[in-house]
Amino acid sequence: MKTDELARLLARGPIAVPPGAVARRQALALGAGGLAAFGLMLGLLGVNPDLRAATGLAGFWTKVLFAAALCGAGTLAMARLARPGASLGGAPAGIALALVLMASLAAAQWLAAEPEARRALVFGSTWAACPWWIALLSAPLGTALTWAMRGLAPTRLRLAGTAVGFLAGATAALVYCLHCPEMAAPFVALWYVMGIALPTVVGTLLGPRLLRW
């Protein structure tokens, strides 16, 4: 087939694309994966029985806001990396800012606490499970977001895998907030971040293999 014939073939028939196709696909994956993660959390962990009381605490909303900010920046990063030739925009700066603010708050709480109370601020009572649960909840999200990314056009595959893993982890952390009984900033700054880092590393490793097109 000659190249001109190919151009003609490609141009005939159904060619229209509704605007917003990238955002729709990403939203669909985020919604489906988020719902599955929520179901996993309900089935395996259950909602924090003290959630109603927790919603009156600044610590709860700090945690939710932190995870939500990382979700937002991760969504932007993924959307940019799904488009050939697009720059990352403000996504890395947004992620860095959220991390720095959380770490500063954690340091402030830790410094302000009595020395004998510091251990509890860092480890709480669930530190050993927290990162693993976040990583587990990120599995359906990672699967759905990988599906979405495979239907788009990442040209920097490793970085695209990083973004998919990071967004899966951040969204899983947001879901995990509904179960998690911990309210201390040092706990969140350490174990939540570790839980998000696990799928981020997995995504970085799998990106070049899974996202080729």
Binding site: I15, V17, V22, A82, R83, P84, G85, A86, L152, A153
Partner: peptide, 14 residues
Amino acid sequence: QRHTYDPAQPLTAW
């Protein structure tokens, strides 16, 4: 991959 073109983006870059 035509659905990944963002009209706000230069065509050349894409």
